[in-house]
Amino acid sequence: MDNLGEIGTTEEQIELMDVATNFCRDKSPMDKVRALIEDDLGYDPQVWKEIGELGWLAIAIPEKHDGVGLSMAEVVPIAEQMGRNLMNTPFGSTTIAAQALLTGGNEAQQAAWLPKIAAGGAATMALSEDGGDWDLSNITCSGKQDGDNVVLSGKKQLVRWADSAELIIASIKVDADVRFAVIERSAVPEGALRRESIIDETARSFELTLDGVTIPADALFDAGRTRETIEKVELAAGLIHAAEMCGGSQAVIDYTLEYLKTRKQFDKIIGSFQALKHPTVDNYVEYEKARTHLYSAAHSWGEQGRGEVAVRMAAAQAHSSYSRAADRSIQFHGGFGFTHDCDAQLHRRKAIFDGALIGDAAYQRSKLAGLLFD
């Protein structure tokens, strides 16, 4: 943490990191992580209640909506420690939904939902469809005006924690224009949610069938703020997932080092072999680069232009670092590494899923190229 002060780490970030480090370590030991894989809900509801009581969901919500009044920068150390301990809860999806509301929602929508989120209510975004396109405006789900209501149709995929969410914000097209629809969980009919089998077994994801779901016309976001909302959602998701992946990188490197310091081959500790030492050092250097990019992005959050560049740099480096560190760990563990019992497997799967949600390192770099060289 020492080197991070040079790029503007706030006192609030440092305090939150201290609390989050202890909380996530204590509440999410690996045996519990593995036990929750078999649990339908996928997380401990008591831990989620405690997260709400700690005020973590209120951090980036303005005080007028019962929030703490800080920014996404202060969410970063919490998401980082959650990733480090594979603590998967609706925290990330809820925080992104709150940012969407703050950007595109009207005063009534914000007043109705932001205090609920700040108090610990879960929310999520429904953005992905069959095409798997990371362009959030390339969608087919639609809404048709019917008097004072809008009737929705189509299917959304990779809707994280949808069964726990009180609020789902879905992207749809109304008269060929992309809009965001505020859908109360109670408006989703029974059978409209189908749990998906995803590579990250510590997460929960659902397909959402919108056919026949009816919402009031005033449940749509402001049509004039769609572009701004898409941009904010992309940046919020990029920052949170970059933080989770940085934490995961640290954890999987620590896990690998422990193995290299204890496993013997030919009467030697295998960590003494150059073929294992050098890649491990490389992984650590890549992790440090990712973490520096992460806190630089947190520091630049909200700055026009510079903020997006910093977030995409952080997301690209974090995904690359996490994927590589987990992959090397699997290789170094030999035959055991290719079994489900190896913890590096869980990290490798999470790296793949995070990349699927926000765009992998190659995609983030392609977006960066456009920002830097156009």
Rank of each mutant, 00 (worst) to 15 (best):
F266S: 07
R349A: 15
D374G: 12
L86D: 05
A100T: 03
R160H: 14
S366D: 10
P115K: 00
R195N: 01
L260T: 04
V252N: 00
Q145K: 15
N88V: 15
D222Q: 05
A325N: 04
K261Y: 11
D177W: 08
D130P: 12
S249T: 09
L152A: 11
Y43R: 01
F206S: 08
I330E: 03
L368T: 07
L4P: 09
L276P: 03
M82C: 02
A356Y: 12
D218Q: 14
G154D: 07
Q109K: 04
K261N: 11
Y287N: 02
G52Q: 05
A316V: 10
T140L: 15
M72Y: 06
I215F: 07
K27R: 10
R194V: 14
D343W: 13
M87A: 06
F91T: 02
D222A: 03
A112D: 11
K32G: 04
L114T: 07
W113Q: 02
A223H: 01
N138P: 04
I37E: 08
G5M: 07
V178M: 06
S137Y: 12
Q110N: 08
A243T: 09
I61G: 10
A97R: 07
E107N: 14
I330R: 01
R34S: 11
D175P: 06
W113V: 01
G337V: 11
T280R: 05
P77G: 01
I59M: 04
K49A: 12
L260F: 01
V150S: 03
V76F: 08
A297V: 04
A192D: 06
V233F: 10
V47W: 02
S186Q: 00
N149L: 09
T140K: 15
E258T: 10
G248R: 05
A203W: 09
A315L: 12
S71V: 02
I59A: 09
Q157F: 15
T103C: 13
R263A: 10
E196V: 07
N3D: 15
A318I: 00
K32S: 01
E231Q: 15
Y259K: 06
G248I: 01
T339F: 07
F332G: 00
D354N: 13
A316N: 01
A118G: 05
I183K: 09
L357F: 13
D135Q: 05
F91Q: 05
F353C: 04
D327M: 15
V33R: 06
I117N: 09
Q46M: 05
I117E: 01
G370W: 02
S164M: 02
G131S: 01
T10N: 02
R195F: 07
I199Y: 01
E207G: 10
V150N: 00
L101P: 03
A60M: 03
S321G: 03
S186A: 10
D39T: 07
T226A: 12
K367M: 13
E258I: 09
T10K: 03
Q110T: 11
E53I: 00
K144P: 02
E129Y: 07
T256M: 11
R179F: 00
I352R: 06
V174D: 03
R324M: 10
F332M: 06
A60K: 09
A223C: 00
K277W: 12
E244C: 13
G359H: 06
R160D: 12
E80R: 12
K261A: 13
N138I: 00
Q110P: 01
G247T: 08
I199N: 08
E11R: 13
L294T: 07
V47Q: 04
I253F: 08
A297M: 11
G359T: 05
R312E: 08
T140C: 14
Q265N: 03
Q110H: 09
